[in-house]
């Protein structure tokens, strides 16, 4: 009696993971909707099949055989009944498999419907972050960012997936299923968000030491907000007039930072690490690991290997008084 509330609580526990900003059951787009519907249909039918099978099995196990019955003796009546039961079970199995195949085909028609979104992104998986390039017919309107994707609400967005090192997998559970990013080929996936919001994504294919800290954000906003954001991202980084920020910029330009990172509008042109032109405008740094604050930026510069062991950001030698201006400068890159 006393165990019942506890059991109810326990059975509710797995469901608590089903909502939130990263859940395949808390859907916010047509692709994820069709996947979730498919999941529930499969779950309902297969659980029914499982329960019926187990009940039949238990009934058969509990049934007592009549004493003195010779197992080699057959009764035509029983044989006929058994034939009917077995063949109808086989027929039902075939029917269920067929029905599930058709339902699954229907969901795939939604998932792979069209391939011509007005907005096209090239997302490259790298150890351990996502490079995002917004494509446009006009080269002046293309730009590169990292780990944060903004999309207009209610519009299809085509994502071309590539990888620069090992196999990664792009997965934003609230918007669509996962798709692998494979070195040497391009896969395509479409996402669409029906409601404004922030949806978290995650690398879903083990890719090395920091696979778990390879997250990304999808920010769905109105077309107007999206255009404003895009115009901001296309523009070059602001040139600081605050003396502290100026000092930070000078430190950035003379230290190893420029070997890997790019800040558009300055001489820093490295392209193997995240583009930092507007790093201060992103919600997180280090691929969804730390919220973007001056303190976290400083922590990340001072001890990247303590926060994400095995990440390719090296420990750079800086004087203690250089850290504050550098973090201030990077945070100011809105």
């Amino acid at each position: 009696m006393g165990a019942r509330p506890f059991l109810i609580l326990l059975s509710a526990l797995p469901l608590s993971g089903c909502s939130g900003w990263q859940s395949a059951l808390d859907t916010h787009g047509p692709h994820a909707d069709s996947l979730a519907r498919l999941f529930w249909i499969f779950l309902a039918i297969l659980s029914t099949v499982w329960i019926v099978t187990i009940v039949m099995l238990l009934l058969a196990l509990r049934r007592r055989r009549e004493p003195g019955d010779d197992p080699l003796m057959t009764h035509p009546g029983t044989e006929r009944r058994m034939t009917i039961v077995v063949s109808s079970a086989v027929a039902l199995t075939a029917l269920i498999v067929m029905a599930l195949t058709i339902v699954s085909y229907g969901a795939q028609r939604v998932l792979f419907a069209s391939r011509d979104g007005p907005l096209t992104l090239l997302v490259t998986g790298q150890q351990f972050w996502w490079k995002v390039q917004y494509e446009d017919a006009s080269p002046a309107r293309t730009f590169t960012t990292a780990n944060e994707i903004h999309i207009p609400v209610g519009e299809k967005v085509l994502i071309k997936l590539e990888s620069s090192d090992v196999i990664h997998s792009f997965w934003v559970p609230s918007l669509n299923g996962k798709l692998d990013a494979i070195p040497g080929r391009q896969n395509q996936i479409e996402i669409q968000a029906d409601r404004p919001g922030v949806y978290r994504g995650q690398c879903a294919e083990f890719c090395g030491w920091q696979h778990a800290h390879m997250g990304l954000l999808v920010v769905a906003e109105t077309r107007q907000d999206f255009e404003r954001w895009r115009d901001g991202q296309i523009s070059a980084a602001h040139i600081p007039d605050d003396p502290e920020e100026q000092k930070g910029m000078e430190i950035f330009m003379t230290k190893p930072c420029i070997m890997c990172h790019q800040i558009r509008g300055t001489s820093a042109g490295g392209k193997v690490a995240p583009d930092l032109t507007h790093v201060g405008s992103r919600q997180y740094i280090a691929a969804g690991t730390l919220p973007t604050t001056r303190g976290n930026i400083a922590a990340w510069i001072v001890d990247p290997q303590g926060i994400k062991p095995g990440v390719h950001m090296p420990l750079v030698q800086l004087a203690p008084e250089e850290i504050q201006p550098l973090a201030t400068y990077l945070e100011s890159l809105k």
Partner: peptide, 8 residues
């Protein structure tokens, strides 16, 4: 020198 950290 100073552009690539020494371990690298």
């Amino acid at each position: 020198r100073g552009k690539i950290p020494d371990d690298q």
